[in-house]
């Protein structure tokens, strides 16, 4: 029995050693010090940034993290990868980062409400926080710096696409269905605020259904199938899926239900942040349009902000990334920018 126990203990210890070795080797790419030599390298060498962002399993997050790391690689700033894929883990990693007292925490928030108290604690601990993409809870808005996507504008672009598409078809009236991201998120609320604002300028077009599809492509397809059946071919003329990966299932659901897509009398489908598949769909004449909010652009702006902050230049407390509307007319201009995720 003793020998068996020893063997088990040996196996366990060996496995643990392998895991630790793999972790040490595997982490080198993301977390190691960046190459120095670029302007500012001498000044920023030794500074540490904790990246508490979206994990690599999210395609938007994967490209954002890659570009952010690349942009800072030449500055000598060390980036600690604290990215994650769920709100609970993010709170833990954020608190862990605060305890390590980096020079800056770069935070892409999964759950706005859950991050409010940790952000207050970071302020009390004197750790600066830069929020990126979606805005933080209003109660802590003044406690952080921010580089934000213009979500209101993204919603406005979606509405403009729908109005332009329907008017282009010569329709004097029309019904619109909307599949949103998670409704409790400020990102979603901001986009819907912009969307409704612009839709109100075209009262002949009416939003007849607005469903929470939770940023889930499969759920989006399912809800789209049911909504299209509910309203029928004569009852819905346009659809808004909040991201390309939500709008494309709407296109497929419509095709399977026998709806014509785009063209002179088909369903107008739009999105409001672009991915490679969406660009291809616009090119194919199916998706009417989308908008930027691409991870590469905001990652570059965040990296630039980080360098300015760490080198003591005192950038403005909040910056907003300029978003662009993408339709067939502007496709070539934004295709490359939108094709990395």
């Amino acid at each position: 029995m003793f020998r068996t126990r020893s063997r088990r203990a040996g196996t366990a210890a060996g496995s643990l050693a392998l895991v630790l070795l793999a972790s040490a080797c595997g982490g080198a790419d993301d977390a190691g010090p960046s190459a120095s030599g670029a302007p500012g390298a001498a000044q920023l060498k030794g500074k540490t940034v904790a990246l508490v962002g979206y994990g690599k399993a999210n395609s938007w997050g994967a490209y954002y993290n890659q570009v952010f790391n690349e942009q800072l690689a030449a500055t000598g700033v060390r980036i600690d990868d604290m990215t994650s894929m769920d709100p609970g883990t993010q709170v833990q990693k954020f608190n862990q980062s605060v305890a390590q007292k980096p020079d800056l925490i770069v935070l892409a928030i999964w759950d706005t409400a859950a991050m409010a108290v940790p952000i207050k604690k970071a302020k009390q601990a004197g750790v600066p926080v830069l929020v990126v993409d979606g805005r933080p809870d209003p109660s802590v808005q003044n406690d952080v710096m921010s580089v934000l996507s213009d979500n209101v504008k993204l919603g406005e672009f979606a509405a403009q696409n729908i109005i332009e598409g329907l008017r282009g078809q010569g329709r004097r009236s029309g019904n619109v269905i909307v599949l949103t991201g998670t409704k409790s998120m400020l990102v979603t609320q901001d986009r819907m605020q912009g969307f409704h604002k612009v839709m109100a300028t075209a009262p002949e077009y009416k939003v007849v259904a607005e469903e929470d599809a939770n940023w889930d492509p499969t759920l989006s397809g399912k809800i789209a199938q049911q909504l299209l059946a509910r309203f029928g071919k004569d009852g819905v003329q346009a659809a808004y899926g909040m991201a390309d990966y939500m709008a494309l299932p709407i296109v497929q659901a419509a095709k399977q239900a026998g709806f014509p897509i785009g063209g002179t009398d088909g369903l107008i489908v739009t999105s409001s942040n672009c991915f490679k598949a969406g660009i291809e769909s616009i090119r194919a004449g199916e998706l009417y349009g989308t908008a930027t909010e691409d991870p590469g652009t905001i990652a570059k702006q965040t990296a630039d902000y980080t360098v300015r902050f760490l080198s003591g230049q005192k950038p403005p407390q909040s910056e907003t990334v300029k978003e662009e509307r993408v339709t067939k007319a502007t496709l070539d201009q934004f295709a490359e920018q939108c094709s990395h995720a």
């Binding site: 999210n58 395609s59 940023w215 299932p249 497929q252 769909s281």
Partner: peptide, 17 residues
């Protein structure tokens, strides 16, 4: 079928399957 329907696949494709 999921891949064909969504015309692409990322880590979130499986969703709540």
């Amino acid at each position: 079928f999921l891949a064909s329907f969504n015309t692409g696949a990322n880590s979130a494709l499986g969703g709540t399957l």
